[in-house]
């Protein structure tokens, strides 16, 4: 499958990576090269083969319903590039 510029733009948008027009074309070419190579997978017959999920050596463990964490607002907010009072802040979102 070959990647066109519109698709490249769409996935950059989905991934929220702001690319300039010239970067888009360079990216498209690079990804296309990799995709061409990856397409060799098409020749593998996977009829009846289940997809691998996890490493299948264990099943999911569960924890007890106890409050063991949280109450560390200052430590968390200290890492943030922008805060106001007890909140993280972002440019105003209009719904």
């Amino acid at each position: 499958m070959s990647l066109d510029l519109a698709t490249t733009r769409r996935i950059a948008k989905l991934a929220r990576i702001g690319l300039e027009e010239n970067e888009l074309e360079a990216t498209r070419q690079k990804l296309n090269g990799i995709l061409g190579w990856i397409d060799q997978l098409a020749e593998v017959d996977v009829t009846g083969v289940p997809p691998m999920v996890g490493t299948e050596t264990e099943t999911l463990r569960q924890r007890e319903d106890k409050v063991t964490d949280g109450n560390c607002r200052n430590a968390l907010l200290a890492c943030a590039p922008e805060t106001s009072g007890p909140f993280y802040t972002v440019p105003k979102v209009v719904e």
């Binding site: 964490d69 949280g70 109450n71 560390c72 607002r73 968390l76 907010l77 009072g85 007890p86 909140f87 993280y88």
Partner: peptide, 10 residues
């Protein structure tokens, strides 16, 4: 209180 019930995971 805002952001008090937040862990590193959250």
């Amino acid at each position: 209180d805002p952001n008090t019930q937040v862990s590193l995971v959250d």
